[in-house]
């Protein structure tokens, strides 16, 4: 059976959807664009501009639409969506890439020590009430001591000791400490050294002191507040006795000649080092304020009675409780 005739008649009903060009069209489905790299014909352009433009546009759009209709689809509530691949033509960004958040002091410490972050639930189980309550916030577990109707007080407590107020003050102090740490973290993230920040505070204080109508003349003075002074320029005398000039020059030469960095600069360098551990503080805590030498003697010296004495102290403290 010859069906070519039927096929031909069927095909003639519809116009062709094929696009034939010398240079194949560059279709970028991801950015919904098509580029026709064939040179524009001079004749068609001169004879009928609009017609020619529309024909080239139609061919390009036909190629793009054909590519779009062959994409995999995904059905959504609004109808089928054609899933687009990422665009091939790269366009510049409008803003730089987002920077990662600088780690807080705790995060740096935890990373150095290998402490894993554990996520706490917002709700905790209350044995007394037999229900889940907030860890903090409205009727929070952290306010338990303040809200209980009876509180144990030591026999030797002050007469005006208010256990509810004490508990509340303790909680508020924790909040304040956390807020202070947040501010410090923000400051650290913004950059700048400690001395820079100090200098800025001094400057702000100085300018705020003279920012009243009387330029600070009739302001209330605090105890021990120093008088505000401007910076006085100081110059060395133009003529100097030979002795002192010689001294200065020799001092300069010896500074150049000296080997290694000065104590001052070494100290500065140590301060700037990127250690998350504050060694001095760690030694102070470990030796209970006695210093590194005492700690070394205690551990390495093997002075038996001394160690025993330490233990005895601990047990005593345990007894007090």
């Amino acid at each position: 059976m010859d069906v070519s005739g039927i096929l031909a008649s069927q095909a003639s009903k519809y116009k062709s959807i094929a696009v034939e060009k010398d240079v194949p069209l560059e279709v970028d489905v991801g950015s919904l664009s098509a580029t026709d790299l064939n040179p524009i014909e001079e004749e068609g352009y001169k004879i009928d501009l609009e017609e020619g433009l529309q024909n080239t546009a139609r061919d390009g759009v036909q190629a793009l639409i054909s590519a779009l209709f062959q994409l995999p689809t995904q059905s959504t509530a609004d109808g089928p969506l054609a899933m687009l691949p990422p665009p091939k033509t790269l366009l510049p960004r409008a803003k730089p890439l987002p920077k990662p958040k600088p780690p807080t002091k705790w995060e740096r410490f935890a990373a150095a020590k290998g402490i894993q972050k554990t996520k706490k639930d917002k709700k905790v189980w209350d044995e007394v009430r037999q229900e889940w309550v907030n860890r903090w916030g409205m009727r929070g577990k952290n306010k338990e001591k303040e809200e209980q109707w009876i509180t144990e007080v030591r026999a030797n407590a002050d007469i005006d000791h208010d256990p509810v107020k004490a508990a509340r003050d303790e909680r508020k102090a924790r909040v304040a400490k956390n807020e202070k740490q947040q501010v410090q973290n923000l400051g650290r993230a913004a950059g700048g050294t400690r001395s820079d920040r100090k200098q800025e505070i001094v400057k702000t204080l100085a300018s705020s002191r003279i920012s009243t109508a009387s330029m600070g003349k009739f302001d209330k003075k605090l105890d021990g507040e120093k008088k505000l002074r401007g910076v006085k320029r100081k110059f060395d005398p133009t003529e100097e006795p030979g002795e002192s000039e010689k001294k200065k020059s020799l001092a300069l030469i010896s500074k150049i000649d000296r080997e290694g960095p000065s104590k001052q600069s070494r100290h500065n360098h140590a301060g700037k080092s990127d250690d998350v551990l504050n060694v001095r503080k760690a030694v102070r805590i470990a030796s209970k304020g006695k210093g590194g030498v005492a700690l070394g003697r205690e551990l390495g010296g093997g002075n038996r009675p001394n160690v025993r004495g330490g233990r005895g102290g601990n047990s005593k403290r345990g007894g007090k409780r």
Partner: peptide, 12 residues
């Protein structure tokens, strides 16, 4: 969203 069409070899 419009479709974009560019025609000329100079765009490349």
């Amino acid at each position: 969203r419009p479709l974009m069409h560019f025609a000329s070899e100079l765009f490349d």
